[in-house]
Design a protein around this nucleic acid. Structure first.
Lengths: 210, 210
DNA sequence: TCGTTTGACGAACGAACGTTCGTTGTTATC
DNA sequence: GATAACAACGAACGTTCGTTCGTCAAACGA
């Protein structure tokens, strides 16, 4: 894995082919991990599923842990693109907060990941397993909760939401209700799961409205 | 594994020694599965952790799937004993419903399982993995939700809770908030997680009080 | 006491795991 | 056109997985 010391080849064009495969691998890896889990995401399974050799795939990452980390990073990108970005279109305050919650439930309803919310699965799988993967998953969820909380704080500041509410508490509750919807949809196969979560979220938002 | 056809040996005393080991295995299996997952619950790992031979342990169940099923069954017993049974002491209606919710959060706070709520983990691990294990986990959670819902229905019937509330909806919400507490405690290591869940649950119960 | 049943064992199986190695075309630069 | 870098490969490594088999001592029923 030693890089060239002299010559310093131009990377801009050179590496395109490799990075295409890299991205293709991660796209499949995310779907596989969302159904089989990040540990069940096997290099052999993933490589045959992509029609490439085990060794060829392995060389892209260097270790299983690195593959898992890259997969979580990729999922993190998808997650924020699907949820946070569309909410930024809505006006600040309560409208954006509502949009954020709806976008989360859309993200599950549209099966952005085949096995449901990637981070709900990854959270449960790694919460008792110290290491870099756990840290990255936890950090991502921490960021998500912080963003949700800041949206609530904004809504308070703008007078859309009662000044008396505890933003962190509401962020916790909204997130819990959303994840509960994902849980009921995928474990119980309840067709009303997401609708139930929407009702719960909207009624909670209603209750804190100024 | 063929049983005697004739003679029919008395089981009451005979089997005691075997069943003791059986129970000891399951007690360790539940803790291991709650941290490593039901798939990470390895026969080799479990046997060395118990100080017995792999083959000897294996003979108790006959297959890995049977071991997983027995472990889920055992966890199911612990779950209902920790949550449902204590709630039956409380008077029917809202008091019992409150007790049920508090007992769930006690069950997580007291670390009944080392890795947090056994069924939260198992749900996420198996929700996309068809088979008997998935079915048993889902059935157990279905029963739990049904019990919660019936406690709400009782509270409505007794006039403790508004007649207008949708019992299934409230059961969904209470369960989601509780599991959210487990999630925040174990993934984010938030020391306030369970307290937050208690606040959320109690305020939800307050909101539906007649 | 003898014979059977039972719980637990060590050894071994094939398959799959993550990983390493040396090699082969392809591609970009000189 | 030579050269070096790179993406991808097949084959093999040692380990662990779930599982099978034959054995053996202890416990039991006769």
């Amino acid at each position: 894995m030693k890089r060239a010391v002299k010559a310093a080849p131009r990377r801009d064009l050179r590496v395109v082919r490799g990075e295409e495969t890299h991205a293709r691998i991660l796209r499949t890896a995310m779907d596989l991990a969302s159904t089989e889990g990040l540990e069940g995401l096997t290099i052999g399974h993933l490589s045959t599923s992509l029609g490439v050799s085990k060794a060829g795939l392995f060389a892209h990452f260097g270790s299983k842990e690195a593959l898992q980390l890259a997969t979580v990073q990729a999922a993190r990108g998808v997650y924020f693109a699907a949820i946070v970005e569309p909410a930024l279109d809505a006006p600040e305050g309560l409208p954006r907060l509502e949009r954020l919650c709806q976008a989360w439930l859309d993200y599950v309803e549209q099966e952005t990941f085949r096995g449901g919310c990637f981070f709900s699965s990854a959270s449960a799988e790694f919460d008792s397993r110290p290491g870099k993967v756990r840290d990255l998953v936890a950090q991502t969820m921490r960021e998500w909760l912080d963003f949700l909380e800041s949206a609530i704080t904004d809504a308070i500041r703008l007078g859309h939401v009662k000044k008396s509410v505890d933003a962190a508490q509401i962020a916790f509750e909204l997130n819990a209700l959303e994840m509960g919807g994902n849980w009921a949809k995928h474990l119980l196969l309840d067709p009303a799961a997401i609708k139930r979560a929407r009702v719960a979220v909207m009624s909670r938002l209603d209750a804190i409205r100024a």
